[in-house]
Design a binder for these strands. Sequence first.
RNA 1: GCGGCCGUGGUCUAGUCCGGUCUAGGAUAGAAGCUUCCCAAGCUUCGGAUCCCGGGUUCGAAUCCCGGCGGCCGCACCA
Length: 572
Amino acid sequence: MDKYDKVVELCRRRGFFWPSSEIYGGVAGFLDFGPMGTMLKRNIERRWRETFIQSHHGLVYEIETPVVMPARVFEASGHVENFTDVIVECLQCHKRFRADHLILEQAGEIQGIEGMSTKELDELISEKGVRCSECRGPLGKVSRFNLLFRTNIGPYSESVAYLRPEAAQGMFVNFKSIFNAMRERLPMGLAQIGKVARNEISPRQGPIRLREFTIMEVEFFFDPKAPGCTLIDEVSDVRLRLLTEDMVKTKTEEPMEVRVAEALKEGYIKTEWLAYFMALSTRFISELGAPTASQMFVAKLPDERAHYSAQTFDQLVRLDRWGWVEVSGHAYRTDYDLSRHIQYSGQDLSAFRKFQTPHPVRVTVAKPKVERISADYGKETGKILSAIKGIDPGALKSRLSSGPVEVDGLIIRSEYVEFLEKEETLSGERFVPHVAEPSFGADRLTYLALECAYTEREDRVVLKLPPSIAPVQVSVFPLVNRDGIWEKAFSIHDLVRRAGMISEFDDSGSIGRRYARADEIGCPFAVTVDYQTMADDTVTVRDRDSWEQTRVPVNGLKEFLWSRLAPLRFIT
RNA sequence: GCGGCCGUGGUCUAGUCCGGUCUAGGAUAGAAGCUUCCCAAGCUUCGGAUCCCGGGUUCGAAUCCCGGCGGCCGCACCA
C-alpha cells in the first residue's frame, strides 16, 4: 500500500473525497468532495485568493463568469480548432496514436505538419508509407478529437455552446468593460476561481486528472512597452528551481536554482510579471506543505506549448506515486487572445498609451470633392464617399498618384479628392495589452496538501495540514462528562466558535480516541477541559504535531489560538 | 482506446483456484450505554453487505462463463 492508497483510504473514511456518482458505478474523471474535503479545498482557494488577489488590491480583481459560453468565443480563442488531438488507429492491433507524432517519427521532419488537415495527414501517411509502430499494421483514417464539452443553449440545436476548458476566456471577453469600470489603469490583473471541463480521452490518477475541476487563474494585462513589474523587488531573492528550454532539449533532469533577479537577467524568463507570479507560486505551494526541494518549473518546448503561448513554464511537484506532477502553468500569452477577440467580435479591445511628451505629426486629410463625384455618379455618390472614408488618407494619396483606385467595383479618380496636410499633436497611441497567466488546479492542490500532510505515528494517522488550511481548526473535549466539566467544555467550544474558528466538540470515547480522531482530520489544536479548569479557569491546548500540552487561561485562549493559526508558514 | 491485474458492511480484509457446510467470517471505524480518563484501554447492545452491475451455466453461484461499469499498472493521450 503506497502513500496514494493510504491518503485515498483516509479521504473516504473521513469525508474528504471519493469517486463521483458512485452508487451508479462511478464515472471516471469526476470527483465528489465531502464535508472535510470541501472545507480544505475552500481554505486552499481562500489562501490563493489572499495571495494572488487580495494582497494586490487595486492591481488584481476577481470576477465571475459562466461556465457555458457560446461557440463563437472558443472559435475566437482557437480552442475549437486547436484544443484537439489528431488521432489515428491501427486497423490491426487497434492501438491509437497521435497522427502527427507518428508521421514525424517515421518520415522525418515535415514543414507545417502542425497546421495540416486530417486529409493532408491521410495523404502523408499513404505517401510516406507510415504504419503502426507497434505491429506494423495498416492505419485507418486520421480523426480529430476535440476535448471541449459541447452543449446547446435553449431549445435550439443550432445554438452550440461549450463548457469552458479554462476560465481565461471569461476575462478576455470582459477585458474592455472592466478596464473601463476600473478607470483604465494598466497593468491590471483579472482573476477567477471556477469550474472548467475538459473531455479527456482517458483520465486516471484520481484527483490528479479530472474531466471537471476547479481552476484558479490570473490573466495579467500589461503594456508590452512597459513590461516592468513594479513588485519585482519583493521577490528578486526568491529562489526558483528551473529547467529552461535548453535544459529540457538536452534532457537535463536536475533543475538549476536561480534567484528571480538572475532568471530575468539571463533571459530564462521572458517577462517580469511571469517571473513575479512564479515566485509567488513557489511560496504558495510551500505554504500548502510541499518543500521547495520537491518543486520545480519546467519550460515547455515550442511544439508542446498551447496555441496561444510564447513561453510556458509548468510548475511541478513531486508526488509519491506519480512523480513530478503539474500543479500550475505559467504562460506568456502575449496579445494573442485579445487580438483574436478583436478580430472575431469586431470590438475594439485595445488600451491607450500616452506619450510622455505629445509630439506633432503631419497628417494627411482626404477631402472629397462632392460636386465632382456627383457629376459622375449621381445617386451613387454616397457609396463613393464612404469608400474614400474607409481608406487611410496617406495610403489613398500614394495609390492615386499611380492612377485610379478601384474599391468594390467603384472607381476613385484623383480628381475626386483633395489632400490637405495638417499639423496635429499626437498625445498617445492605441495598443493591445499583453498577458501573463498563472493558472492552478485547485483539486490537485487539495490532494497535494493531503499527501504532504500525511504522516503516521504509533500506528495512527496524523494529518499535519498547515493550520492556515486545516478544515477544522480546534477540537474541544471535556476530560470527563460529569461535575460540570461537560458544560464548561461546551461553553468553551462556543467561545472558540464565536471567535471565528471552526471548532468541533467531542465527548465520546476515551480522551486518546478523541485526540486520534482530531489528528486524522488534521485539526491542529485540541483544547481539553479538566478538573483544574474548574479551579483556576485554565485549559490545556494540545499541539497536533508535537503532542505537547500548554496550559492556557480561558480568557487568553482566543488570542493564543489565533496567533498560532493565522501566520503563514513557509516550509523550506 | 488496447493489454495485464483487480472489484466482498464506512474502511481494511477472509472466503474465489477445487460451486453446496457462506441466510458471508474477522478486524477496524460508527451509534447508544456502563466504566476509566491526557494519547484509538475494557465491557454490553445496536445498525450496517443488491458479495460492482447485467446476463448465462447449474438442482444450487461471492466462487465458473460472457458483456458492461469502475479502479490500478503498462502503452497511448494529457492545449
